[in-house]
Amino acid sequence: MHPDVSADLAELETTLRTVEQVLDVEELRRRIDELEHQASDPDLWNDQDHAQQVTSQLSHAQGELRRVEALRQRLEDLPVLYELAEGEEGDAHTAALADADAERETLRSDIEAMEVRTLLSGEYDQRDALVNIRAGAGGVDAADWAEMLMRMYIRWADKHGYGVEVYDTSYAEEAGIKSATFAIKAPYTYGTLSVEMGTHRLVRISPFDNQGRRQTSFAEVEVLPVVETTDHIDIDENDVRVDVYRSSGPGGQSVNTTDSAVRLTHVPTGIVVTCQNEKSQLQNKVSAMRVLQAKLLERKRQEERAEMDALKGDGGSSWGNQMRSYVLHPYQMVKDLRTEFEVNNPSGVLDGDIDGFLEAGIRWRMREEQKQ
């Protein structure tokens, strides 16, 4: 085996061993046994919320164990692939060597992705994500851009097999959306997507400008952790004004026919949330209340962070604001302004291929936190 390959395999071994230590594979196996025991209890489903929590934790733990065991197996198989390649001659040798090199590169990126997951240790990182997108400056182009971003995150979720629940979509008059709120349901999606928070900027030839001029549009992305019962975000009914109205925009037969859409206004803070994607007013109210709780939880966290920053004499973090540029004209590039990570394939990124940006963002956040 070539010395460079041996050194590379040794490096992969070190990284994977660190991942296994952080995940504590033996503890993970013990936790799975315990959760399987709870899941097999016939009385479990008497408490629906608790049962869903147990089954969700079990499937997440099993998935983590499967992933890390598969990486270990592939790493142990790699030297065998190189040995087999060395036993071949001519074209067969070249092809087998190329296959082994390709597997080594794929394995490296898979181990690095798993390593990034181990960096998600924040208080809410393991939660589902609640994503809110709002069109910013740029008129109809900005509304179109907001819809493109919504599609990007939903495509990313689809590629990973994560569930998506859309709570509200406010359509713009000519094209696109004014705003949208949706949940991405899988463990650690909040920790992973929280680095997407901020202003996303699009530069392109406007499809809405008959003179074909270049247009810059902006959209805001907000990412919140989905609230759980343990968060104790109590909302006084008297503090909430409830308005009902007819849903607007594209929809099925039941849309636009009844006053099923719900708008909640939290009077003390002025926070407004809407939900119009369920068929019944009651379902919309429940979903809207969930979003309001998430926003109030985030507000509480921001206040606590501001207090900590004041105590540390820190002028606030560099989060939010303009964080990524997507340029479609005069050249093709997507560049993250915090991490310097960039790719020259905007169409792939807008089709949900954002894992490179997410990994770079998580590593960047880790470095920023270590500086403080």
Score class of each variant (00 low, 15 high):
residue 7 A to G: 10
residue 1 M to G: 14
residue 74 R to H: 13
residue 340 E to Y: 04
residue 370 Q to C: 04
residue 98 A to P: 01
residue 355 D to R: 02
residue 312 K to R: 15
residue 185 K to H: 11
residue 63 G to I: 08
residue 256 N to L: 07
residue 306 A to T: 12
residue 87 G to P: 02
residue 260 S to H: 04
residue 187 P to D: 11
residue 333 M to G: 04
residue 2 H to Q: 13
residue 169 T to V: 15
residue 261 A to V: 07
residue 329 H to A: 14
residue 118 T to H: 05
residue 244 V to Q: 09
residue 77 D to R: 14
residue 234 D to V: 14
residue 158 D to P: 00
residue 372 Q to W: 07
residue 122 G to P: 08
residue 241 R to D: 13
residue 265 T to W: 00
residue 106 T to E: 15
residue 362 I to M: 07
residue 336 D to Q: 06
residue 22 V to K: 13
residue 230 T to K: 11
residue 217 S to N: 06
residue 223 V to I: 14
residue 25 V to S: 09
residue 293 Q to S: 14
residue 357 F to H: 07
residue 123 E to L: 09
residue 291 V to D: 02
residue 331 Y to F: 14
residue 50 H to I: 07
residue 212 G to L: 09
residue 217 S to R: 05
residue 296 L to E: 05
residue 188 Y to E: 09
residue 253 Q to E: 10
residue 155 R to A: 05
residue 209 D to M: 09
residue 363 R to A: 13
residue 70 A to T: 15
residue 332 Q to D: 12
residue 18 T to C: 01
residue 217 S to H: 01
residue 47 D to L: 06
residue 88 E to W: 00
residue 168 D to K: 02
residue 11 E to C: 08
residue 295 K to L: 14
residue 166 V to P: 00
residue 211 Q to I: 06
residue 269 T to G: 03
residue 31 R to L: 10
residue 78 L to A: 03
residue 328 L to P: 11
residue 228 E to R: 12
residue 174 E to M: 10
residue 218 F to G: 06
residue 178 K to E: 13
residue 339 T to V: 09
